[in-house]
């Protein structure tokens, strides 16, 4: 049995709904769960709009010291830090499940995932690299940006129930409990950068370079999309497996992604229909309704008072510290 899950807050339910529908259409035998980093009972929600998939709230999966994590992390960090804890929960509570696969909610599945299932027969863990060829340009994001944030994209990760995968999840949970931060100067970028260790720390980790996997702005420089005989193809040869609409906003439909400046719709007309399709599905799944819900785990902004007093009080010691640094 295979279980697929995603993680989001209520404001992203249209995306999770859209993802779930695309998954179920072609892979009806998979179980699908939406992990919700949010609370349902605090909101007045029109129940008829809820997707008909299992919603598993994060306070129900027994994360040790979850309160501490909520204090420590901002909303992005918290949403990513809980990923291995969901894996852990499924491994412990669903013994009949052999394969567990995570997808980000802003993804659409375009094929039957037999290729992935076959790889999980042979390997313990499957990851997908952002790129498989160099960029050869000076645009954003660059090859060193990927090095800083992670070679593999953790909008996807698949694992097979195995001692090795359990070891990996245990270690990943430990790391993300305290160090799921965005702090590039100290080597930290949420859950994703930690995962760089997977191929060296654990056995049978497969770096899946199938061109149809995790197609997104970061690899469109090497992947051309076309629709032929009722099927999306990459570079006219490989069937598109899943497309990742990372950083795409309905409010800015002319931008491919807010995180980059390499790919645009003027030069890449091949991807226009893929984004049109996505926009329409999100709207059909009530994106405009869901997007305004506030997540219960967002902390109120911290207000600092006496800013000027603080500055002057600190000045003498700050001057001394700078002097010592300049020696």
């Amino acid at each position: 049995m295979t279980l697929v899950f995603t993680i989001c807050s209520v404001n992203y339910l249209a995306q999770a709904h859209t993802f779930g529908d695309s998954l179920k259409t072609l892979n009806p035998e998979f179980e699908f769960v939406i992990g919700l980093v949010d609370k349902l009972e605090t909101k007045s929600i029109d129940k008829t709009k809820l997707p008909c998939y299992t919603l598993l709230e994060v306070d129900k999966i027994n994360i040790p010291d979850f309160e501490e994590m909520c204090d420590r992390y901002n909303i992005t960090e918290l949403n990513t830090a809980v990923k291995p804890y969901y894996f852990d929960y499924f491994l412990k509570n669903r013994p009949e499940i052999t394969n567990i696969i995570y997808f980000d909610p802003d993804i659409i599945i375009f094929d039957k995932l037999t290729h992935l299932q076959d790889n999980l027969e042979k390997y313990n863990i499957v990851v997908t690299p952002h790129i498989t060829t160099p960029y050869n340009d000076n645009l954003w994001q660059s090859e060193e940006d990927l090095i800083n944030t992670g070679i593999y994209n953790f909008g996807f990760v698949g694992l097979k129930r195995s001692v090795e995968a359990q070891k990996m999840i245990k270690w990943w949970c430990e790391k993300l409990h305290n160090e799921c931060k965005i702090d590039l100067c100290n080597g930290l970028f949420v859950d994703q950068h930690w995962a760089e260790f997977f191929p060296v720390y654990f056995d049978k980790v497969f770096i899946d370079k199938h061109l149809g996997n995790n197609v997104a702005y970061w690899n469109l420089h090497e992947r051309f999309c076309s629709f032929e005989k009722n099927q999306w193809l990459i570079n006219k040869t490989q069937p598109l497996q899943f497309f990742h609409y990372s950083g795409y906003l309905i409010a800015k439909p002319n931008e491919v992604s807010k995180y980059q400046n390499r790919i645009n719709f003027e030069e890449r007309v091949d991807i226009i229909p893929l984004f049109e399709l996505y926009k329409n599905r999100l709207l059909a799944n009530n994106e405009l309704y869901w997007k305004n819900f506030k997540c219960d785990y967002i902390k109120p902004p911290k207000i600092t008072r006496f800013v000027r007093v603080r500055k002057y009080a600190k000045l003498p010691l700050e001057k001394l510290a700078s002097l010592i640094e300049s020696l």
Binding site: P129, H130, I131, T132, T133, P134, E143, E144, D145, L146, I147, N148, T149, I151, Y152, L184, C185, G187, E196, P199, I207, K209
Partner: peptide, 19 residues
């Protein structure tokens, strides 16, 4: 320049198994 993901020759090797 670790803040930018640069460490002379070494950090480039991160890409090698994928590329």
């Amino acid at each position: 320049d670790l803040c930018k993901g640069l460490n002379a020759d070494q950090l480039w090797l991160e890409h090698v198994p994928a590329m």
